[in-house]
Amino acid sequence: MTENIEEGFMAFLGDGQEGIGAVREVNDTSIVIYVENAGEFVVPRTAVKDVHFQKVILRPDRLDKRLLTAIGHEHDSEDPNLVG
């Protein structure tokens, strides 16, 4: 079952993977995702693979290269000594 996307849902590159950001805005043609340490990115609805259990699963091959780069660096500012 596919849910409607709502603000606050988490975005993922695949089921079972770590979340990449939170949905901040939803409209008919796109969603806005906030990625920690990088800001907000507009993602076209065509890049959404599935939505379930308040998770938005994205198609990496349809994402902007800037967003993919940001995802790779979202945890750069974390202190590795605090990760548990």
Rank of each mutant, 00 (worst) to 15 (best):
T69I: 06
R59S: 12
N27F: 08
E74Q: 13
V56C: 01
A70S: 06
V23C: 10
E74H: 13
L13A: 07
T69M: 02
E6H: 13
V48T: 01
L13G: 10
L82Y: 10
N27W: 01
G8P: 06
D64G: 09
V56Y: 02
D15M: 13
S77W: 09
Q54P: 06
F53I: 00
N37Q: 07
G19Y: 12
M1P: 02
R59H: 10
I5M: 12
E7A: 15
F12W: 05
V42L: 06
F41K: 00
L13D: 13
V43G: 00
I57V: 14
Q17E: 13
E25V: 08
S30L: 04
S77G: 02
V43E: 00
V32C: 09
Q54E: 14
I20H: 04
S30G: 09
H73A: 05
V35R: 06
I71M: 03
L63H: 12
N4Y: 12
A38L: 10
L82N: 13
D50S: 09
M1G: 13
A22T: 15
S30V: 01
L67R: 04
L58E: 10
Q54V: 06
T2P: 03
E25L: 08
A22V: 12
I31W: 02
S77M: 11
R59I: 08
E3G: 12
V48N: 02
G84F: 14
E74V: 10
E78T: 07
T69V: 02
T29F: 11
K49H: 12
V23Y: 00
K49W: 11
T29M: 05
V48D: 01
V35T: 05
A11Y: 00
I31R: 07
V42A: 08
E36K: 13
L13T: 09
G21N: 09
L82T: 15
D50P: 02
D64I: 07
N37C: 09
E25N: 07
I20G: 04
F12D: 00
G16F: 03
V48E: 01
V42K: 03
G19V: 09
S30R: 05
G14C: 09
I31S: 01
M10H: 05
V42T: 14
Q54H: 13
P44K: 06
P80D: 15
P80E: 15
L82G: 10
R66S: 14
T29A: 13
G84T: 15
I33H: 04
H52Q: 15
F12S: 04
D64S: 15
G19R: 07
G21P: 11
E78V: 07
A38S: 15
L58D: 05
T2N: 09
